[in-house]
Design a binder for these strands. Structure first.
Lengths: 126, 126
DNA sequence: CTGTATCCTACGCGATACTG
DNA sequence: CAGTATCGCGTAGGATACAG
C-alpha cells in the first residue's frame, strides 16, 4: 500500500507555481479514464461493475486505482452497503459535481469532432 | 519515424463505439501537457522555446511529441519561417480554437480548486 | 460482487549528444 | 533556434490468482 501511483493516473509532479490553473485541474482529472468515469457518474450513483462496463478499455484494476484517487481528491464518495453479496456505489461529491461544466464541454466537443471526422474522413477512425 | 506513440500522449486504443464522446475528446487532448499547451496558445502564436518555458515540467522532447500529435489531429498549425536562425511558431487551427470552452472551464475549475485547497488545507499539496 | 496482491514486461520518457 | 537520434531506466499497467 505504498504510494506507487501510475503516471496515467497521477502526474508525477503536482502542478506547482510553475504551471497554470489548467495543470491543477489535470492533477485531479488528468488520467485517461477519470473524466470518463466522472462523466458517467453525472447521471447518478453507479456500482463498480457498471462503471467497469462503461469503460471497457480499462481493466478493473485501473478503474479501482482511478476511483481511489478520485476519492482521495474528494470528487467522489464511496458508499459501501453492508450486505451479502457486497454492494458498493460511487457518487459525485459536491466538488465532483462542480466539474460538470468541464465534462459537458468535453462531451460536446467530442461529439462535434466525431461528426467532422466522419464527414471529412480524417485519420482517427479505427 | 515509426509509430511509437507514448501512452501519455495518445491512448493505445482509439475511443471506439464502446466509449462515449468524452473519450473522443480525450483521444485528442488526452495527454498531461496537451491541454496546457493548447491553453497557452489561446493567447496567440507561440514559438517553440516559449512553449517549452510555459510547461517547465515537460522536457523539450515531450513538448515536441505532443505538438506533432496535436498537429496530426488538426488542432494546431506549425508555421516555419525560412530564416536564419530558424523560427517556428505554433497556432491554433479553427478546430483547435473550438476547444476554448473546454480549456477555459478547466482553468476556471482549477482556480476554484486551488482556493479551496489553500483554505481547507487538503492533501493535494505535495 | 468488489476488490487486492503479485509477477512481469513493454514502453514511456528523461538525459545526452548531435544536426541544419 | 528548433528540433531529432539514441540509449537506458523506471514503472505503468496487463494478466492472473486469490480474498472477504
Amino acid at each position: 500500500m505504498n504510494d506507487s501511483t501510475p503516471i496515467l493516473t497521477r502526474p508525477r509532479r503536482k502542478a506547482g507555481r510553475t504551471g497554470c490553473a489548467v495543470e491543477v485541474t489535470l492533477s485531479v482529472i488528468g488520467g485517461l479514464w477519470k473524466p470518463v468515469i466522472l462523466f458517467h457518474l453525472l447521471d447518478g450513483k453507479l456500482r463498480f461493475n457498471a462503471l467497469c462496463r462503461m469503460v471497457p478499455n480499462a481493466t478493473a484494476r485501473m478503474v479501482t486505482l482511478q476511483l481511489r484517487e478520485l476519492e482521495r481528491d474528494g470528487v467522489i464518495n464511496r458508499i459501501v452497503y453492508p450486505e451479502v453479496p457486497p454492494r458498493v456505489e460511487y457518487e459525485l461529491t459536491e466538488l465532483g459535481r462542480s466539474l460538470e461544466p468541464v465534462l459537458l464541454s468535453m462531451r460536446a466537443w467530442g461529439m462535434g469532432f466525431s461528426s467532422d471526422e466522419e464527414r471529412e474522413h480524417l485519420h482517427i477512425c479505427p
